[in-house]
Nucleic acid binder design. Sequence first.
DNA 1: ATCTGACTACGGGTTTACCCGTAAATAACT
DNA 2: AGTTATTTACGGGTAAACCCGTAGTCAGAT
Lengths: 215, 215
Amino acid sequence: MKMRIVLVDDHKVVRDGVKLFLQNDEEFSIVGEAGNAVTALSVIQRENPDVVLMDLSIGEDDGIELTRKMLGENPDLRVVALTMHNDYQYVQAMLEAGAKGYVLKNCDENELREALRTVMNGDIYYGEEVTKMVMNNMAHQQKNEKTASVTFTPREKEVYKLILQELTNQEIADKLFISVRTVEVHKRNLMEKTGAKSSTGLVLYAVKNNLFDHP
Amino acid sequence: MKMRIVLVDDHKVVRDGVKLFLQNDEEFSIVGEAGNAVTALSVIQRENPDVVLMDLSIGEDDGIELTRKMLGENPDLRVVALTMHNDYQYVQAMLEAGAKGYVLKNCDENELREALRTVMNGDIYYGEEVTKMVMNNMAHQQKNEKTASVTFTPREKEVYKLILQELTNQEIADKLFISVRTVEVHKRNLMEKTGAKSSTGLVLYAVKNNLFDHP
DNA sequence: ATCTGACTACGGGTTTACCCGTAAATAACT
DNA sequence: AGTTATTTACGGGTAAACCCGTAGTCAGAT
């Protein structure tokens, strides 16, 4: 029994390339293809494939959202991202959308086959390059943040943490046994230091600079 | 010339264990140790070691903040995290703090040596287990989020994206050529769907669920 | 002993956000 | 043709956030 694959990519060249890879194969068989989101959904519903090979940017459509949607309708579907983006954001988004594999377009034939087999087995596959990129990205994020390093006073940190818990000024005041006005002052100073214009801005700053992330 | 190492860990057992690993060694030499943050800072300033082996939780002190601090004062220092936590949050936080390596305490002697050598060379080292954990974590985050998946209307998404750019309701209204009241409605609905109590809550929800992360 | 930084707090004002209900136009699906 | 979802918008109000200046206390540094 061959593995039934559907290809989703807006570039015909890519689809043909992959078909060439896998045609006349005893293991894999491409049972459908699509160049946009709408077609993809109908083809997949019709063919009910084992695996979907999915590009990230399908013309106007978003492969990540499409993946999310497909898996919402059919959670047993296995999606493998096939893309040229070796980018942390994309890998993360795609895996979180529910993709079971992530392979670069410049991979060799064996890697693609290996990915398909692994995913078919219910496991998760990511190429070596992808793994490397993810780890290096984590390590090098630190460089991007050195520039924007601001120091907060202990009290400011406390207030900041509570802001990040969706508390209002009043609630923060109660929790720290101080006046709301004091909380306002700390907040003002925090906004001054971070360049934020509101609580929302403070949260965004905290996220961008990964403050208070570690538990 | 031996590599000069300072050990920071609040458990004497661990310090002794590592010393046993590396004593009478031609390659490595432990020139100092510390059980808390204050001692660590002074020892490191005195000894100016090549590498610091650092635990994450040093009693009351936070190894992550300590690392950040040390590297702020002396950016050329190489810090290797040595810990039992094989946890995404910790790895990320530590690498972002500027650590050049991350090794688990249950690693074998060779892995520790390899880590020290790699870091000494100016490269970054993380054990195989750590790499595996990070990748699996990324892939499995999706499971935690399936539960909390809400669908937004296109317009709601637009508004949401602008909220995440620190715009006020008025600014969002101007940008979308609609009334502030309309923005308020969308926001109300977003807060309804997400359970957020304010804009801040919406931002936090977006972060936790990694919405709109991919560019 | 003075000075700086951090934390505290108030007054008084403006603006923005949030709450609640209502409701019309449009599109889409049935 | 009728229901439903989406987007649009208003009115009227409350509560919270934000702005700006002032000012006392207390610890630690010079």
